[in-house]
Nucleic acid binder design. Structure first.
Lengths: 227, 227
DNA sequence: CGAACTTAGTGTATATTTTACACTTACCCA
DNA sequence: TGGGTAAGTGTAAAATATACACTAAGTTCG
């Protein structure tokens, strides 16, 4: 059996929650090739751990290091994938067309402002897609995304993880909009702020939003703890 | 890479939280064999899913079907296991002594009263070990157990999963003792009962505990919902 | 320069949930 | 029948969560 990792990379552009998808060649009926969107992922190399493989995929994709990454589930249905992926698959397809692949799902949160598609090795091939409008993907990738989204929702409220999707300096309204979009429900402004501000890792900056056509908002930042 | 599943099987004997361990042959320095305790597990067969593999391991081990089983984490450090397990490993050891194995961790909750070691194919080889006194195990199995226990603690409070470890008919004191032992802290009796009884799947039976040398307790049962 | 527009920012009262706490009851046994 | 043992029960206080509406600070345009 081969083992891959697949990354559900979430991003937020102030309006929509998006994920990064790539174009991928896939054997449609065993011999022809069709183009289809898929999650970024790759086979785990012989000398790397699962986490390392996921970091590598992410680095190649986004040129970003140190971003939030978390394993959330292994997918091992025997029929989920036959054959391999990307550059790999064509080559090994000849040798072993029925090679089974299981995958370990990771989800990742990136600040979209940091993401520079030109710097990435997948440049042009990767695109942000609204997570609520994902088309039919290769393999079981739709299922993987659904599970990743469930996990994200859970961690968002349990661990206040939303900062990872915002710029270093953000307003509370941005954060609230992010929560509302991910959780798909309206939140009360005052109660939301009370909740966020009782987290002592959130600190107000001596700085205000600029260039908006209304009262500028206080900027906040999130202090990561060293471990 | 080979893929295995490992099962952390929890049981509760009214006093201690235990897990099932088996004796396993393992290559110590690449050629000699030493006996060591390990988690029950096996390689995933070519035509089965991860869940199916875990159920199979569990069935062979305990002769029990339909018990609580949940995937919790994949472990894929490249050095975690070299060589295979059980019957498999000796055979494949000759062919491929450096074969890497990743594993998918499952945890399982069994009612100890249902567990009949004589019926199990692992009879005699498996034993219940106090989860707080697990010796040094093969591979990374201690780490897997630690993670399983964390997950169990989380699900115990989040999903009221404790019933799976008790007989069909149980007293609230039994359940409370179970919670106290798993969470490793004392709980208030009245508050605990209020909490449990507001779960409408818990119903009181017309029956009392027998053969105890004190006031006999009301028996309760837990109604599984059909899906 | 002020009127209109837009989002930021703020406090309080009520309901709900969580916590802390101690005595009586029912059965067994000697 | 008296002593031992765990079962069973209610209430007050504290903490947390919810509902709710107006003023403030900028921008733009006439």
């Amino acid at each position: 059996m081969d083992v891959s990792v697949d990354c559900v990379v979430f991003g937020f552009d102030d309006q929509k929650l998006k994920i990064l998808l790539i174009e991928q060649r896939q054997p449609a009926d065993g011999s022809t090739i069709k183009l289809q969107k898929a999650l970024p992922g790759d086979l785990v190399k012989d000398n790397e751990s699962l986490d390392e493989a996921a970091r590598r995929v992410l680095l190649e994709l986004t040129s970003l290091e140190g971003i939030y990454l978390k394993q959330f589930q292994a997918f091992g249905d025997p029929n989920r994938v036959r054959g391999l992926k990307d550059q790999e698959w064509l080559r090994s397809f000849r040798n072993n067309p029925e090679r089974r692949v299981m995958t370990v799902g990771y989800y990742s949160l990136v600040k979209m402002e940091d993401f520079n598609p030109k710097a990435a090795s997948f440049a042009g091939k990767a695109q942000w897609i609204d997570v609520y409008k994902v088309p039919l993907l290769a393999f079981d990738h739709n299922e993987i995304i659904d599970d990743a989204l469930k996990m994200l929702r859970h961690e968002l409220v349990a661990d206040n993880i939303g900062f990872e999707l915002l710029p270093d300096k953000f307003t509370l309204s941005q954060l609230q909009r992010l929560h509302e979009i991910i959780l798909d429900k309206k939140l009360d402004k005052r109660n939301f702020r009370k909740n966020i501000l009782k987290n002592e890792r959130v600190t107000a900056l001596n700085e205000k939003q600029k260039g908006v056509l209304h009262k500028p908002a206080q900027l906040f930042t999130f202090n990561k703890v060293e471990e």
